[in-house]
């Protein structure tokens, strides 16, 4: 009895699709994506510049105004400006997305390195560990972490991160194997570099590049999972204008106030799309470089 599909032999299950062949120009999609990323960066680090109002300021008598010149994205059930909240929410939303992805990648990297450089025993241990992690689906492990840490964004982030780790780990293992048997490592060794230096300077950069595209997809995913936890009442704490929490609380008013769901939802989708486009462009560049 074997479980070939999970030992990474046959396939790279989460491997991103190959980029369109033969294209070297930077497409308009990528330009748009970079533009959006710049907007997000501004929203994260200086939200006051593009949205000077206070995201928590309530105006009960202005509740549920549809989008207008004074409120571009309308107002919510407490009369708060949705545009302001979306902009100010970028920081906390992306922190969840990036931190979860980082947790997933670091865990995966440790597992991958142990699998490839830990000998047969290391590989076997990692194989089982990955299987066990796979056996705990995202929301399930999120709920377990919440059981221990109590509800909140920290628990959500850790849980979402851990649950993405096994997928990354398999890909890392495969690419580490490829890189190890390639010419660079041999060359580096001939140059007299030590094993640690080879690992950090030569192997990891080459092995990580295919992961980039996937990890960018993961950022959006993490925000989406965190929003599901908010829907279940176990996510971000008010009045933090986190996108997932905004989406979850807007669900109640979906039929009466569409703008409450549409704008935070658009932000999540746009973030995922632009992150994916950028990730793929980087991946394609990395491949050409090799």
């Amino acid at each position: 009895m074997t479980m070939t599909a999970v030992d990474g032999r046959s396939v790279d299950p989460l491997r991103p699709p190959a980029p369109p062949t033969g294209r070297r120009r930077v497409g308009p999609g990528v330009v748009l994506s970079v533009g959006f990323a710049a907007f997000l960066a501004l929203a994260c680090f200086a939200p006051g510049l593009i949205a000077p109002q206070d995201p928590a300021a309530v105006a009960p008598l202005d509740a549920f105004s549809p989008p207008s010149f004074s409120h571009w994205f309308g107002t919510d059930e407490s009369g708060r400006d949705v545009y302001t909240r979306v902009v100010h929410g970028a920081g906390s939303s992306l922190v969840i997305g990036f931190a979860a992805t980082a947790i997933g990648l670091v865990t995966a990297l440790l597992l991958g390195v142990l699998a490839v450089f830990g000998g047969r025993i290391g590989d076997a241990i990692v194989g089982r560990a990955v299987e066990v992690l796979f056996a705990f689906p995202a929301l399930l492990s999120a709920l377990l972490v919440i059981l221990v840490l109590g509800p909140g964004p920290v628990a959500a982030t850790i849980a979402v991160g851990l649950s993405t780790a096994p997928g990354y780990a398999r890909i890392i293992r495969t690419s580490l194997l490829t890189v190890r048997s390639s010419g660079y490592v041999e060359a580096a060794r001939l140059l007299g570099h030590g094993p640690a230096r080879i690992l950090v300077r030569t192997i990891l950069p080459n092995a990580l590049s295919p992961l980039l595209a996937l990890a960018t997809l993961g950022v959006g995913q993490a925000v989406v999972w965190a929003s599901s936890l908010s829907f279940l009442g176990l996510g971000a704490q008010p009045p933090a204008p986190e996108w997932g929490a905004m989406l979850a609380s807007a669900r109640v008013y979906l039929t009466t106030a569409w703008w409450l769901t549409v704008f935070p939802g658009l932000m999540i989708v746009a973030t995922t799309l632009s992150a994916t486009a950028i990730g793929r462009a980087l991946d394609a560049r990395g491949r050409r470089a090799r």
């Binding site: 309530v58 009442g233 704490q237 008010p238």
Partner: peptide, 23 residues
């Protein structure tokens, strides 16, 4: 939502109300 509004009102006067949504 009502609690969030009270939280925002109280902040105007200088109360730091920490809402914690719990199971």
């Amino acid at each position: 939502s009502l609690f969030e509004q009270l939280q925002a009102n109280a902040a105007e006067v200088g109360f730091d109300v920490q809402l914690e949504l719990l199971d």
